[in-house]
């Protein structure tokens, strides 16, 4: 145990410092303690202002919805891909290569590419000879399709790699063992493969959910003007030329962080329970 603590110190200390400083600054700024102009004054005004502006609630709803749908798709696609990676030669070579090559692409580049692909005058629209007006509104549309597709695409690669690493060869061997013990395909999936993948799915799914919740560039590039997801709202308030609203930007960020924390903690509890009952 002691050795374990020592081993993670080099990674944990800088992380804790950076995170601690950022969160402290965020809290301080959201409470008006470090104003750009004027004297410091502690208050929760920024929180009540942003809450009463009527923009926070829709932002929370839309952010959670986007993250939930995108993560659900990413889990489904990522899990299937991971299975193909661990059980087929095609999967272990081609799919793994594809997934690995997807990881280093920054989300902002991915978002730009998805935009070029799916926009009204994008490649696909041209490929299908769609005339203005009858192409589905992926980009800036009411269903946030392009945003969700971008997250789902990037995160499914991430989830696939994490789950495939967990399943590795053993899961395939265990599934075959189960087959020899009389388990059909459905039973193998339900009693062996799924339970083996579940802890990794919970962890990777939580990471991608929290990422989708807190990331700015994808909904900003591919989303619509209203309602705004939380990070876009925070960014707009942060870059407002009215310095008075800057604390509100940090208030929105703190709310986002709180939501992410709640989700992270619940996921961890779920994860623990999975591991214990496993």
């Amino acid at each position: 145990m002691k050795r374990f603590v020592l081993l993670i110190l080099p990674a944990a200390v800088p992380t804790a410092l950076v995170l601690g400083a950022a969160v402290t600054m965020g809290v301080a700024q959201s409470m008006g303690l470090t104003p750009v102009a004027g004297g410091p004054q502690s208050s929760l005004d920024a929180y009540s202002a942003v809450a009463s502006s009527g923009e926070l609630a829709p932002a929370v709803v839309i952010s959670l919805s986007i993250a939930l749908v995108a993560t659900a798709i990413a889990i489904a696609v990522g899990f299937t891909t991971a299975l193909a990676m661990t059980t087929t030669r095609f999967g272990s070579k081609v799919l793994k290569g594809l997934a690995i090559s997807t990881i280093p692409i920054p989300h902002v580049i991915g978002a730009a590419a998805i935009g070029l692909l799916l926009a009204d005058s994008g490649w696909l629209a041209r490929l299908f000879g769609s005339t203005a007006g009858n192409w589905p509104q992926f980009v800036a549309g009411p269903w946030w399709a392009a945003t969700i597709i971008e997250y789902a695409w990037k995160e499914s690669a991430f989830i696939a790699l994490v789950v495939a690493a967990t399943l590795s060869r053993d899961a395939d061997e265990l599934a075959k063992t189960a087959a020899v013990l009389g388990a059909g395909p459905a039973a193998r999936m339900r009693y062996v493969t799924m339970p083996l993948a579940t802890p990794a799915l919970i962890l990777a799914g939580t990471l991608s959910f929290v990422y989708a919740l807190g990331s700015f560039e994808v909904p900003w590039l591919l989303g619509r003007a209203y309602p705004e997801p939380l990070p876009v709202l925070a960014y707009r308030l942060f870059t407002s030329t009215d310095l008075e609203v800057r604390p509100q930007a940090f208030a929105v960020s703190m709310v986002t962080m709180a939501i992410a924390l709640v989700i992270g903690v619940s996921a961890l509890r779920l994860f623990r329970r999975q591991v214990v009952t496993a």
């Binding site: 800036a140 549309g141 009411p142 900003w220 619509r224 003007a225 209203y226």
Partner: peptide, 8 residues
């Protein structure tokens, strides 16, 4: 788009 959204 019937003013449902605007260019960014």
């Amino acid at each position: 788009r019937a003013g449902q959204t605007y260019p960014k």
